[in-house]
Amino acid sequence: MSKEKMARQFTEAIPHARALSMQIDHLGDGIVEMSMPYDTKLIGDPETGVIHGGAVYALLDTCCGAAVVCHPASKGGTATIGLRIDYMRAATPGQTIRTRAECYHVTRSVAFVRATAMDDDTDRPVASATGTFTVEGDL
């Protein structure tokens, strides 16, 4: 099975990714782009309708994990060791969140990933993430 197909299956088999309607838009060597449509159930601030940081976190975490899986040096499985997210601004209500993750270094046991989250205004990122992930064999 190709890495791409594996990463796609890996992500689409995740119940929580389905619950948040996450979608893979692009897969490359260690690079993944994903999106998550706006939904009122994700609102974290009822006054403004801005989605909760936790939902953006979940999308970034999934996108980073997928980037690890489709890195050429990946052995198929992964789990998050640590992930830090900086929230630069509130995502605009009603707009799809798009993330791009890049797995930029892999050792025998650790994969290093960085990612950003955007809405329609691509000049101003909503959030950025840096994380470390395990490198594991068969899932």
């Binding site: 995740i14 119940p15 929580h16 990714a17 909760h52 940081g53 936790g54 939902a55 976190y57 979940a58 999308l59 970034l60 975490d61 999934t62 994990g65 789990a79 998050t80 992930l83 997210i85």
Partner: peptide
Amino acid sequence: ALHGGVTAAFLEV
């Protein structure tokens, strides 16, 4: 296993 994003969201909430 629980989704890492769920764990993070739970902690953030």
